[in-house]
Computed example of a mutant assay.
Amino acid sequence: MSGQFIFFMLFSVTAIGGAIMMLNMERIMYMIASAAVTFLSLAGIYVLLHAEFLAFVQILIYAGAITILMIFGIVLTKHEEKREEPKRRFYHISLFAGVVGLFAVFYYVINQSAFPAVTREIAQDQTKEIGLLIYSQYVIPFELVSILLTIALIGAIIIAKREGK
Rank of each mutant, 00 (worst) to 15 (best):
V57F: 08
V57R: 02
V57Q: 07
V57W: 03
Q58F: 00
Q58R: 01
Q58E: 05
Q58G: 01
I59N: 02
I59F: 01
I59R: 01
I59E: 00
I59P: 04
I61V: 15
I61W: 00
I61T: 06
Y62P: 00
A63I: 02
A63L: 00
A63G: 01
A63W: 00
G64H: 01
G64T: 01
A65W: 02
A65C: 05
A65F: 08
A65I: 05
I66V: 11
I66P: 00
I66M: 04
T67Y: 03
T67C: 13
T67N: 09
I68L: 11
I68Q: 04
I68F: 07
I68A: 09
I68P: 04
L69D: 05
M70G: 04
M70H: 04
M70W: 10
M70C: 03
M70A: 05
M70Q: 06
I71D: 06
I71H: 02
I71T: 08
I71V: 10
I71L: 13
F72E: 08
F72T: 07
F72I: 11
F72C: 11
G73H: 05
G73R: 10
G73K: 09
G73M: 11
G73Y: 07
G73P: 09
I74K: 11
I74E: 15
V75M: 09
V75T: 10
V75G: 05
V75D: 09
V75E: 10
V75F: 10
L76F: 15
L76D: 05
L76V: 12
T77I: 07
K78C: 07
K78W: 06
K78F: 14
H79W: 14
H79R: 08
H79V: 10
E80G: 15
E80R: 14
E80Y: 13
E81Y: 10
K82S: 12
K82A: 13
R83V: 13
R83W: 12
R83G: 14
R83Q: 15
R83E: 15
R83K: 15
E84L: 09
E84D: 14
E84A: 12
E84P: 15
E85Q: 14
E85N: 08
K87M: 13
K87H: 11
K87D: 13
R88A: 11
R88M: 11
R88L: 12
R88G: 09
R88C: 08
R89D: 11
R89E: 14
R89M: 15
F90K: 13
F90W: 13
Y91F: 14
Y91S: 11
Y91P: 05
H92S: 12
H92F: 12
H92P: 06
H92W: 13
I93C: 02
I93A: 04
S94W: 06
S94G: 03
S94L: 13
L95S: 08
L95T: 10
F96M: 07
F96R: 03
F96H: 08
F96S: 10
F96W: 06
A97F: 09
A97I: 05
A97S: 10
G98A: 05
G98N: 03
V99W: 01
V99R: 01
V99A: 04
V100F: 08
